[in-house]
Write a protein that binds this DNA or RNA. Structure first.
Lengths: 212, 212, 212, 212
DNA sequence: GATGAATGAGCGTTCATTCAT
DNA sequence: TATGAATGAACGCTCATTCAT
């Protein structure tokens, strides 16, 4: 596979991510995608299977990276509070830096065929499972105090995922500031008032795993 | 207009809300919509303008109701903490009880033509403006303490809106419990530790405005 | 049949004539027709059979009137030149005063089903037969001198029929002047230089047969 | 563009000209057109823009050719009588040899959108302007004597255009004979008795400009 | 590797017409 | 007499995909 082939592969993938995020899977036509990738619609099929395959690949890659990052943080984590803060920072950074991919993951589950949806859902469940264990561990250790463990976890994830829906790289706050604010609010939500030192490791992990 | 006409109107609207929420606007075909409403695709056009008109109406109605409810709560609110808790309860209740409509509002902005999107965005901005004023008032009065006012407001809304994405009427927690948990977490996020009495007024308001 | 029924009948017919002339039979929708007649599309069907029936009736009525008028002129005619001039005046007057109906007759033959087209063609042939007999009689009597009898007849009719395509009641020339000019040119075309007195009988006949 | 592409282009155009002439623009369906061109309805769209675009192109091409031919004749014309005879021969030949295209031009103006109609009308006006100048020049030079200049011009054009409505290549008269008959009648109509030599240049010009 | 040509299926929408009220 | 409601069929057009070159 020549370098230019890989370039084209990435142009196609990039165009798909952008368009699927902007217009949705069903709202994006194959010709539109081809034009955005600088190819004819027939040529597109040298670089992908079907439109559905492309979507599936995007979603799976994105979720695998999230799971990978989360596992790394959990393995090297100190206590529940520190680990949860790291997860929040990582999740926020990923949803800000890879806004389009994560939006696709969040919005286009419904566009998948049942079989493929199951695969993707398994990945998403694996990711959420990591969060659940931390939240539950923190509650068990009475580091966290919440009205309801499950509701807290879901609310936490929705809050952090939402960053992808409003983040702009041109905003006044830096990504580090936004991530720290979320970490602080997350711990506050969980009734944990211990102040934590700022730490950019989780953000660095995102850039490592997703690429520059 | 006979009663059966209004019934059919509502069947069409109901089918649209359900399908648009489930499959997305672009993922829902006119014939599918017609079948769900128990009509031929031609008959559908007695009860709606275009498919776009139907989407627009759904989104606008939903947002107008949210704005109406929010204004009522703000007008009758005591202080920032009490008002914010009421807003949270109302928003959560609306997103749980009217899950499908609110999902459509959240996901299908991009399916609107620019002109109509502007209208809908103006409504959404009006709604968010109400939240902003409460959050800012609470911060000014030092009832709330947050890392960043804007980030806090956005995170809060994402957290509460997210209920529409996971709520199930068959869950173990009652809606009141979920709403209260969110109110408590919201205030915790905002650094406000004063305990608030539970209050079902905001939820009752939702059922009043949206109908049983 | 009440007077108002006849009024409505005529409103429907009038709207059809106008719209079929302006937009063509296939270019005119039944709802458009209903709106122009001030009725709902369902009510339209109290005043007509099908859209095709309406077209057929318009065309047949128009051609029957042309045949009637032509026969009256031929029966009371003096010689070929006088009779031909009268036919020209009548034809021009009918195509100016009943511009829309005659345009429909000329343009919409193709929209008829074969069976109905045959009926209408028989009427048209009857009308053209009258012209043919006059032209041929004039040639036989050496009152007319033309390069080719058939070509002359066809050219004559096209010239006179064309009036419906350009006549405007707001033009500077009166209908009498236009009719006389055509009569003069027709005779000139036929190589007949005898000057003829102007005579408004043929025009009066048109207003008599077609109504005011 | 391969030869077969051009062939298909012409098959599509040819089918459109034939069907639009026979059944009218609104009376011709896309599937009917596709079948006549030997393609699927989807493939049709490789060879045309919209159905309207196709109609517009047919009408504009036809009118541009008429204008081109007329200008060539006027530039090389001797006097008003000779030039007018040449115009008549050319117009008649074009309307006989390109019967279908000219019928489309004459009948389908109303099917165009206002903007496109304006373009086409400008071309038609340019063509009619050429005729007007010749008729007026002949009248000014007292070569022609007519009841009314404008009426004469309109009648002349209608007579000659009408050829498209009745000409058949299987008729007993040759095209040259028909064209000459019209030239003679036209001059007679205009009160011009000078006999003119027959001349096939105008007809040759038509076959040159329109193709064999 | 790249694409013009091709298409069956389906899109959202409108058609002329019928019928119960 | 009048019309809302209803529909099967068709409208013009685009879809994702394939394949020969």
């Amino acid at each position: 596979m020549s370098p230019s082939t890989r370039d084209t592969d990435e142009r196609v993938r990039g165009a798909a991510v952008r368009l699927f995020a902007e217009k949705g899977f069903h709202g994006t036509g194959i010709r539109e995608l081809a034009e955005a990738a600088g190819l004819s619609s027939a040529s597109l099929y040298h670089y992908m299977g079907t439109k559905h395959d492309l979507l599936t690949e995007i979603m799976e890659t994105s979720l695998i990276r999230l799971v990978t990052a989360a596992r790394r943080l959990v393995e090297s984590g100190d206590g529940p509070a520190e680990t949860l803060a790291a997860l929040v920072r990582m999740h926020v950074a990923a949803h800000a830096l890879r806004q389009e991919e994560t939006i696709v993951v969040d919005n286009e589950l419904r566009a998948l065929t049942p079989e493929r949806r199951d695969n993707v859902l398994a990945l998403r469940d694996a990711y959420e499972h990591i969060w659940r264990e931390i939240v539950e561990a923190g509650c068990a250790a009475q580091v966290f105090r919440v009205p309801d463990v499950k509701v807290a976890r879901l609310a936490l994830l929705e809050m952090c995922t939402g960053v992808a829906r409003w983040y702009s790289p041109r905003g006044v706050l830096s990504l580090t500031e936004i991530a720290s604010a979320h970490a602080a609010m997350a711990l506050a939500m969980l009734g944990c008032t211990t102040p934590l030192p700022s730490d950019d490791y989780a953000i660095a992990l995102v850039t490592e795993i997703w690429g520059a």
